[in-house]
Amino acid sequence: MSTAESNPSIGLTTISRTVASLAVGVVHTLERAVVGEGRMRTARGNAWEAVCADRARADRRAELDRVVAELTAARAASARRQRERQPVG
């Protein structure tokens, strides 16, 4: 039995995870200090922003659909008037 096998070693992935964890902690602390406790982004806030963005996109899409329908109707009416003006012959 070897004593080297029983001792856990610190590998490259352990160091990378440690550095990443420390970096996240620093960024979180910095955000709290700069932005303020009440204005920090949360999962709930992000979800609400996504819902609002989806609603705004749906509103713009509906408005564009309405404009296209109006233009299509106007073009069809114009074509109908032109056919009525042409002499049958």
Rank of each mutant, 00 (worst) to 15 (best):
A53H: 04
A69H: 03
P8F: 00
A33I: 13
E31N: 15
A58W: 03
G11S: 13
T72G: 02
A58C: 04
A74M: 05
L71H: 09
R75M: 06
L30A: 15
G89L: 12
A69Q: 10
L30R: 09
M40P: 01
Q82T: 10
M1V: 11
G38P: 02
I10W: 04
E70G: 04
R44N: 11
D65V: 02
I15L: 15
R60W: 03
G25E: 11
T42Q: 05
R32L: 13
R85H: 06
V34D: 06
L30W: 11
R41A: 15
A76Y: 05
T3P: 06
V27K: 09
E63P: 00
E63G: 03
A76F: 02
R61H: 04
S16R: 12
A79S: 09
V26M: 07
R57P: 00
V35L: 15
N46M: 14
S78L: 12
L71V: 08
D65H: 03
V35I: 15
V35E: 11
A4L: 11
T72E: 14
Q82C: 02
T13H: 09
L22R: 14
D65I: 03
G11K: 05
V67I: 14
S6H: 05
R61D: 03
N7Q: 09
T18Y: 06
A77R: 15
R83H: 07
T13C: 06
R81D: 14
T18F: 09
V27G: 01
A53M: 08
R83D: 08
W48Q: 13
G11M: 02
H28F: 09
L22D: 07
L71T: 07
W48L: 11
V27Q: 07
M40I: 08
V26P: 00
T13K: 14
L71Q: 12
S21G: 12
A43C: 02
V68I: 13
T42K: 06
A73S: 10
V51E: 09
E70S: 07
R32V: 00
N7T: 05
A69S: 10
R32E: 14
T72F: 00
A53E: 14
V51A: 04
Q82E: 14
N7L: 06
T3N: 12
R57M: 06
T14C: 04
E37N: 08
R60G: 01
V88P: 03
R57T: 02
S6D: 08
G25F: 04
A20M: 10
H28P: 00
G36M: 05
E37I: 01
R17C: 08
E5M: 08
V27H: 02
V51D: 07
R55K: 12
R44P: 02
E63C: 01
V88G: 06
T13V: 03
G11T: 07
R80M: 02
T13Q: 12
R57E: 07
A23T: 13
L12A: 12
R75P: 00
T42I: 03
V68G: 00
V34K: 09
P8Y: 01
V26H: 05
E37K: 11
